[in-house]
Each structure stands twice: as C-alpha cells, then as structure tokens.
C-alpha cells in the first residue's frame, strides 16, 4: 500500500504545531497502525529527520496508552478497537490519513502526537480507590454480589483510561471516564464505604482539571474502544447529586 500521512508535528508544549504530509510506500495491510507508524519513523530517521512521537505500550489493546485521532475519529475507523489493534487493512491503497493528537486543554500536547494525560491520574488519586486493607485474596463468592450488578461493575471496570472519550467529545468532557470509575466502585460492596466522598472528590477534580461538561451527545460511547455505556454518566450524576444533597459534608 502507498499512503499519504498528514501528521500533527509540534516540537514542545509551548511551540506552535502544524499538519505535515509524509509519503509512505510498501505498507502491508496486515501491519497494525502502530507498526505502520514505526515504519514511517524508520524512513524519517534514514532521511535524517526527527521521528514522530506517539504513545504506545502493550500493543494488545489492554493498557490504554495508545491514542491518535485518525481520520477524524479517536482510535480510527474501527469500532471497539484501540489504535494498536487497528490494522492497515481498514484502509485503501492510495489513501490520505490524517493523524492528530487528542485535543483538550486538560491534555496538553507534550510533543507531536503525545499528550499529557496525567489529569486522569489526578482524578483517580482524588478518590478512585478503596482504602481497605485487602490482605489475601478472598474466596470467590465470599462477598455475594448479584450477577447483573457484577456484570455492570465489570463493564464499567473495562475502561482502560485511554482518553478517547475526551477526544471524541465536543466539550472535551471526561464524564465517561470518571463515571466508569465511579460506577465500578459504587456498584460493589467493597466500594460502598467511600461511595459518597469518592464521587464528590473525583468530580471536583475533574472540574478543576478543566474538562468540559456533558451534553449527552453520546459521542464518547460510540468511540470508546471498550464500549463503556453513557448510562454510567447518568449514574454518576445521580451519585453526585445524592452525595451533595444527602451527604453529611
């Protein structure tokens, strides 16, 4: 395959960036998108240029490190797929592919396609945990949880924190991410103890980081590589309202 790649190049956070075009020949349709990026970087290095920075780690769709806004969609055109699991067979020979970083004031560009997603870490640090001593692993089913609830909690826990929801949202809202974390802990008995304080702290941190609010467009759900449902956002709203109104603090 022969491709034209329009890639966002930006030297540092405060530098101004621009889209730059690259030609890449000999791309195999069985390559993953990131292997194609590796191939491009090898070509750029051979030509004496500065390779394109992009994030990745596991390359098997579980860590949430890869990003990239590809042809107008986070993680590219395939549904329920991270960029590392996207393959070049999803494209045609001769295609032009636009590749941009996540765009959000809370996710400043570090370099090229790499953005700083530590805002998500700070939201988790604010309350996305349970402070019980876990000790040894307990027997399965020692704490009874209804199957439906367990499934809901598990679906929410599937969030890998990649930030595609923020990238997809017209408001750069982190509501889907935060609501997934709030839901997965609020639904389970282990998370119940800090249920009220958790949602208050996480949401306040989310607002402080400068993410937008939720207009319920549903773009996040449609673009989420793990299929996290916006029903979680409604649950988070409910949890936050009830914690604010009925909580002791």
């Amino acid at each position: 395959m022969k491709l034209t790649l329009n890639i966002w190049r930006q030297a540092s956070t405060n530098a101004s960036g621009s889209m730059q075009a690259y030609k890449l020949d000999g791309v195999d349709e069985d390559m993953s998108f990131l292997e194609m990026m590796d191939m491009l970087n090898e070509q750029i290095i051979r030509d004496g240029g500065e390779p394109v920075e992009f994030d990745h780690d596991c390359r098997e769709g579980i860590c949430g490190m890869c990003s990239l806004y590809i042809n107008g969609q986070p993680h590219g055109p395939s549904n329920l797929t991270t960029t590392c699991q996207l393959h070049m067979r999803s494209f045609q020979d001769g295609d032009t592919i636009d590749i941009e970083p996540w765009r959000a004031s809370a996710f400043p560009v570090v370099k090229d396609l790499v953005v700083d997603r530590s805002a998500f870490d700070r939201i988790i640090q604010a309350g996305g945990y349970i402070s019980v001593n876990t000790g040894n692993a307990v027997d399965a089913n020692a704490v009874p949880v209804e199957k439906k609830t367990a499934d809901e909690a598990f679906d929410a826990a599937a969030c890998i924190g990649c930030g595609a929801c923020v990238a997809a949202c017209k408001n750069a809202s982190a509501a889907l991410f935060v609501s997934a974390k709030v839901s997965h802990l609020a639904l389970l008995p282990q998370g119940d103890a800090e249920r009220k304080s958790r949602v208050l702290k996480m949401l306040d941190q989310m607002d402080e980081e400068g993410f937008g609010s939720c207009t319920n467009t549903g773009a996040c759900e449609a673009e989420c590589p793990k299929g996290i449902s916006i029903t979680n956002i409604a649950r988070m709203n409910r949890e936050y309202m009830s914690a604010s109104i009925f909580g002791e603090k």
């Binding site: 966002w8 636009d98 017209k170 750069a172 937008g212 609010s213």
Partner: peptide
C-alpha cells in the same frame, strides 16, 4: 456552559467525523 466547553477544547481538529458518533442537534 458553552463558554466553558469551548475553553476545554481550544484547538479544533483539522479533520473531524463527529457526525458519525453524535447527532447534529446534540452538537
């Protein structure tokens, strides 16, 4: 809300297929 939401996304995308994932009215 609209002003804050705009501030949260100061740089727009060069290419966006927002129409694939959300309705025009909602945006």
């Amino acid at each position: 809300l609209s002003l804050q939401n705009q501030k949260s996304r100061p740089t727009k995308y060069a290419a966006s297929k927002a129409g694939k994932s959300s309705s025009w009215a909602s945006r």
